[in-house]
Nucleic acid binder design. Structure first.
Lengths: 253, 253
DNA sequence: CTTGAAGCTGCCGCAACGGCAGCTTCTACC
DNA sequence: GGTAGAAGCTGCCGTTGCGGCAGCTTCAAG
């Protein structure tokens, strides 16, 4: 089965011009060229094109893409890597949206106060999630890092998943009780719980402040985690994050 | 409070070169320029920069960004629009990741079969989510389109808002009861409810599958809708979306 | 008073295509 | 069999959004 250039263009959403360009620079030569000079593509090429477009969507340059596809040993492994990176990028957009939401909230506040454009607390916060989140670097050590972080935060080694799961749930319920009691996230009893968690975490492995903050964010952003929190009490995920952030701000700087 | 160029660069993650470029093309002039020619930025500029970077992340060109920021009537309204678009983009990446997952599954299958690179079912599916999802268009008719879709889904004409509102709430409550009873989103009783809604919707006006899916997504993403659902039961918005998506997958393809 | 960091203004260059122009090829229909 | 319209091809030049200098100025600190 072979497709002419316009067909491939239609399927993939890129222009024929782009496909010719990719041929020209050697990134995606067609499967064969007819005696009339026309380009024809087969399935292998489509799979390659998919990878190219995925990587391009992540902001990787074409020359680099060529390199990656070049010394790709296991195609499946590579695809899994790309998918993980896509999900990370999705999470970045999520934080970006959250950042914008915060800006909206602040502007609404100052509009209600009549305070005309008062000082923004920390201008850095205006840009959270905007940084491109170095894809090249993550091409190297993403899987290891993420997996480790997830396992570690959960506070469980892979061997004792079940027990750890129950313990974690119990912690979440205690936290939910504190919320229900009306304690704000930076109140003492909450912070002391968080402190216990933090010690358990760092006992497993060293964790930088940035890493800790990333974990805090993923309580809300990671789908499964968020679901786990929300199953116990609505808003609990955000509460946990707030508590961890307060902890980081107060005791880890 | 004013910040020199390097400070702004550090906070926002762009280079000073880029900031100068934005000044040069009139996109973001500094708040003022010192007698020495140095650029200084204030909060208004930071807010502007945030919007610029958000739009840039969505792939909008600089000239177009200038246009948008130029005839921006309500800043808050614009920010809300940007956030919605970010969430839409996030979902695109989500589907992209799903597409890649599907490719992985197919390759794994054919590897197990020993079938070396069998025919891919529908090559189009290889590229789902890759299409840039015309942002320009959504910048123009997003509000109108969404509103129309929203009204239509709610199953009410503008004249009978109140009655429709009550009816809709009743539907939501019935749905919440089904959730509480433990039915998954694709279970029969739920799907039959969704079917009723779907018929009511299509009776008003023709709705494509894509459009229907977009509506499903906006149950979660649209602030007001989401709030309306969540007010009845936590997680209900996501449940409605899941049910609609299951319906689309099972009966509309 | 010097010295290193931070600024400034050009100017050139590059990546990743878009848009022609000018020519060929292939059906498709009269 | 002739011709029109769609699809292909190959250059070549233009554009966007910066990155990278070079060459000069300015500023806070010791």
């Amino acid at each position: 089965m072979a497709w002419p250039i316009a067909e491939v263009a239609r399927m993939s959403g890129v222009t024929a011009r782009t496909l010719r360009h990719y041929d020209e620079i050697g990134l995606l030569p067609p499967a064969w060229i007819g005696s009339n000079g026309h380009r024809y593509y087969e399935e292998r090429q489509l799979l390659h094109l998919q990878q190219i477009l995925v990587l391009r969507a992540l902001g990787v340059g074409l020359t680099e893409i060529a390199g990656i596809l070049g010394d790709q040993v296991d195609e499946l492994e590579a695809l899994r890597g790309h998918r993980d990176r896509l999900l990370a990028e999705r999470d970045r957009l999520d934080t970006l949206a959250a950042t914008v939401s915060r800006t909206i909230a602040e502007l609404e506040q100052s509009r209600k106060d009549g305070t005309p454009m008062t000082s923004i607390n920390r201008p850095e916060n205006l840009f959270e999630g905007i940084q491109p989140a170095d894809v090249e670097a993550s091409l190297r050590d993403f899987p290891e890092h993420a997996e480790a972080a997830l396992r570690a935060t959960a506070g469980m080694s892979q061997a004792e998943i079940e027990a750890g799961q129950r313990e974690r749930t119990a912690q979440m319920i205690r936290l939910a009780e504190l919320t229900a009691a009306g304690h704000p996230a930076d109140a003492e009893p909450v912070q002391s719980k968080i402190d216990t968690e933090y010690r358990a975490l760092t006992a497993l492995r060293p964790v930088s402040v940035e890493e800790y903050r990333a974990i805090a964010r993923s309580c809300v952003e990671n789908e499964q985690w968020n679901a786990a929190y929300e199953a116990i009490a609505p808003g609990l995920a955000a509460y946990q994050r707030a508590a961890m952030e307060a902890y980081a701000a107060a005791r880890l700087s």
